[in-house]
Nucleic acid binder design. Structure first.
Lengths: 203, 203
DNA sequence: ACATTTGTTAACCGAATGGTTAAACTAAAT
DNA sequence: ATTTAGTTTAACCATTCGGTTAACAAATGT
């Protein structure tokens, strides 16, 4: 029998675990809950992934593996800076709208286990910003954009892109927007963020 | 006998719980661990705060109570917009440098329990941005700053201010900065963030 | 047809954890 | 000195949770 996507228990587990872990975090999640979500017996979780820790790492790596290459690819492209920033924010915001739990999950778990970054850094797709930095420094040197530290600019780009997703309950509270209006605001950011950044650095 | 600050068990517990909860979150934290940190017996925790849930809520409200009024006060001051933004980012970044775990804690717990925002919103010190919005809209109307949606601007300010603290392990990885260099970058943001924002909105 | 491997389950286990209890200690009030 | 109210502790309890076992079922190979 050929395994169809629907019956592939291993993938079902990963999908279920992703949902539960992303909603409740490593400690809040219960193996039983994941088993229920996957529609299987709890022992099967241990059959496929030996322990909660290993299951968690599998989910984490999949999540991070979705986020990182996207950034990396654009950062190292040979686009002009302005186009690059537009592409970076537009693509990334679109991507996160489809996977809204992803950044929260990655960032929270990296906070409770900072040393894990050291492992991630060695992996092939981990974003490298040296090309981007050189590009920014050259433009500053040539007087084509306002003077700005490249690391700061990079941090700004990610902040403006990702934070509204991580802090959405808080920001919904502050702005008094309902879900629909807040989603509209996020949608608008596909354009608004790059406009804002480019205004900030161009003369 | 007058209770001194050092021996006030109730406050000791809150302080210990703050440390543990902020490092491990609601689920990761153990009552025994909090008791150890406070140098007391586990049963005392339940004597002063009836349950883990109530202890957690006490810590959370204290944490939020430190963050919110600061924002609120400045937002509703009658400073000129440019000065207000400078004050907002400078003060807030300084504040978070002193309490680096705070935003992570608040945001993560609000994510696992979004309905709690509804409770917070009703409290007196919860930030209200209507004054700020009117101010921005008026300046746009008069053509004194570039056209920008006030909610978006507010979201941008908070993103640029808070995100580098929440995502510090990740950003340290991306930028390849060590702890000292990253702290320097955060320190620099006291000025850099407001410059960036003001550049983005002024003609 | 039979044997072997792979997938799945119900029942169970030990450790950890949040919470309780009842007794002991302390210090001020009577 | 005795009472009283507040504080602290050790021991204990019930439940939850991650993980294991052993038996069974379904697929696969020979």
């Amino acid at each position: 029998m050929v395994k169809t996507k629907d019956n592939n228990t291993e993938d079902n587990i990963l999908e279920a675990a992703k949902n539960i872990f992303q909603r409740k975090g490593m400690f809040g999640a219960r193996m039983q809950e994941i088993a229920n979500e996957a529609g299987i017996n709890k022992a099967l979780l241990h059959y496929y992934y030996r322990s909660k820790q290993l299951l968690f790492e599998a989910v984490f790596k999949q999540a991070f593996g979705l986020m990182a290459p996207k950034i990396n690819e654009i950062l190292n492209s040979d686009l002009e800076l302005e186009t690059k920033i537009k592409s970076l924010t537009h693509n990334y915001i679109s991507f996160v709208i489809k996977h809204p739990y992803l950044p929260t999950f990655v960032i929270h778990e990296l906070n409770s286990n900072p040393d894990f970054v050291k492992v991630l850094i060695t992996e092939k797709n981990f974003p490298n910003i040296t090309v981007f930095k050189k590009q920014v420094e050259a433009l500053v040197e040539e007087g084509k954009i306002k003077s700005i530290n490249a690391d700061q600019l990079f941090v700004n780009i990610l902040s403006l892109t990702i934070f509204p997703f991580i802090a959405s309950p808080l920001l919904k509270g502050f702005t008094r927007l309902d879900d629909a209006a807040y989603n509209k605001l996020l949608e608008d950011r596909k354009e608004a963020v790059s406009d804002f950044i480019i205004n900030a650095i161009k003369f």
